[in-house]
Design a protein around this nucleic acid. Sequence first.
DNA 1: GTCGATGCAAAGGCTTTGCACAGCC
DNA 2: GGCTGTGCAAAGCCTTTGCATCGAC
Lengths: 158, 158
Amino acid sequence: MVAPSSAGEGLRSSLHHRGQRLTPQRQRVLELFQRTGEGTHLSAEQVHQRLLRDRARVSLATVYRTLRLLSSMGLLQELELPEGGRRFELASDAHRDHHHLLCIRCGRTEEFESPSVLEAGQQAADGRGFRLLECVLNVRALCPRCAADEALHLEGPE
Amino acid sequence: MVAPSSAGEGLRSSLHHRGQRLTPQRQRVLELFQRTGEGTHLSAEQVHQRLLRDRARVSLATVYRTLRLLSSMGLLQELELPEGGRRFELASDAHRDHHHLLCIRCGRTEEFESPSVLEAGQQAADGRGFRLLECVLNVRALCPRCAADEALHLEGPE
DNA sequence: GTCGATGCAAAGGCTTTGCACAGCC
DNA sequence: GGCTGTGCAAAGCCTTTGCATCGAC
């Protein structure tokens, strides 16, 4: 078999702390996210498809269970992009400050970072005694092309 | 004091621009949001319940259709709070800068505003040629009580 | 009167769950 | 070997849709 990555080790001990086990399926899911990188947003369905493509034997139900588990462990996090459905991505400290610029018309998504946003979020949390975990700014917008389309097709509403 | 008719007028002409009609149901839904205020987050189910309580005859299917319609017209907007399911709220210019501090453990939600966040979002949009519509910062955090619980229990089945 | 909107109920996605078996520790 | 995790399929939400009727314009 393939040598387990360092990810496997960390995952295993984290699971053991919770009285749970490291299975190939769980390892595969986490590895997939680590391999695809931090900016990747995957739905449960996409995770399942990719694992099958990699010749891993995982059921969709297990993918759902695993995504939940890894999220509850803080290794993954769920995104908040209503237009596209539920998505997950790798959690990391860098992602505490992790923002999306989303075209609400065509779905195009760009990522950006902004220390000042993190700062504002931290202030808001501190001011109310909350402990900040993560800070996600979603900027809903029209991309250049869709903005042009809108201008053409729409009469001006007030 | 908002005259009920004023909402109806604007809505009616907006609908007519699109070749659509003003119905009591559509008017009721919009009025509900205007009445409950801008900070209110309502699910389709909640909208339906409240309208029934107000003795309006609306079906849940129509509520869904109307929420979609009003959102596509820019009068309502969909929130992005994965923990709670789909919610809608009144759209307004004030809400271009409209942020949530959310306890991921108990679901408690606080709202806040932050001009610097809007500015950061505007910058990100401008830099890529996007036209900003709305800027929503979701700060995922632990509220004071849940943070204390976490510290005490360290870990546990949920 | 026309054509869009509504209500109802059925269908549709996506996600979760019950159960028997498989496999990690 | 015990007990958790998995796969499968059925059940569960939430949301959308087809069709006959109703009602805005």
